[in-house]
Write a protein that binds this DNA or RNA. Sequence first.
DNA 1: ACGTTGATTGTTGAC
DNA 2: GTCAACAATCAACGT
Length: 389
Amino acid sequence: VVTLDPPIRKGQTLYPHIVIQFETETVVQKNMKLSRELLDEKYKDRLVESYQGLVHEVFVKVLRGLSGAKVTRPGSFRNYKNGYAVKSSLKAEDGLLYPLEKGFFFLPKPPTLILDEEIEFVEFERHGAGGASMSSQYFDLLVKLKNDQEHLFRNIQRSEYRNLFNFINGKGLKVMNLGDGQGTSGVTDVLQDTDDVAPDPHLERIKNQAGSSEDSDEEDEDFVLHKDDGGSPTDDSGGEESDASESGGEKQKSSKKEARSSKPPVKRKPKGKDGEGSGKRKPKGMDGEGSEKRKPKKKKDPNAPKRPMMPFMYFSMAERAGVKDSNPDLAPTDIAKKLGEIWQKMSTEDKQPYILQSQADQKRYEKESAAYRAAAPVDVDAGSGNGSD
DNA sequence: ACGTTGATTGTTGAC
DNA sequence: GTCAACAATCAACGT
């Protein structure tokens, strides 16, 4: 995650973070394309001539050298499987919540950074309100900010509760609990009681099928720390922290930085206890079996004009036979791959004839579309609903 | 259905 | 209601 100051603005929306996904195992060997002088003068002690290693680590080292930015890594928190994050959902998105030394980060979407210093309190909420029966294996974590914003991290596995609570409590954050003045007993009791009970294996299986690979992904995050030297990545340049966000040593210079942790603004919820009644999540088909294809809607009007052919399609028509000739063994799908490969290597000039054909087809499509729209203007008057197709 | 490129269409969220 | 981002769709083709 690259955090920007100031954020990128698109339209009316600000984007404070860029999230990049790397292959975890890919190793690269790259030389800096910088002149010797520049390297010796401006980036002395910050960059070296070449880098080799896991791609994300090289990326971070180079970016840090170029920008001088601080680097944050997972701190001391571990989930119950010894990973760095806990699975959770924010808004409608499933993701990972990383508890850091000085804050929290939810990834991948929406990328949400919360600094401890802006938190008023956190509240653990049990799923399924009210009761004596603790049927749910999940709980929610509500983070209330001093500026009144709220972030509700839903559907955290019950087995994460102990580590998460201890970590948050250890930071000195204020922890609220449901209807209970006595510190932490209410929810804590319930959650901890059942902590060691194995979750319903059937449910687990279903969930894993419905969701995506769930167990594995957290665990292979381990690479991050082991790589350098167990948690203090300050091997070179000494300019980084083991964890926590950008406020480096102190927050004296952070006057303007306060505003930054706020992402695209969050609308406030009235009170934290109305919405979560139904812990519904992904609409992925998970009932018995059978139903695998779900098309929300497929309106295929046979009269609709066909889409225009892109230049690449004309290129494919022209060259497919030739490619097939020189590689008779290739499957049709492999021929498509090859065509795409060739296409990417062609210059705009070479593509020109196909571009011209495509432009002609685009005109054709525009005309037909206009006519099509004029001919079938859907429901015009509010008369009797006539289902003419 | 696959597999390609890339424009268009559809959906979602923010303001 | 408007704007931007993002996801899904779909053109041709041959097995």
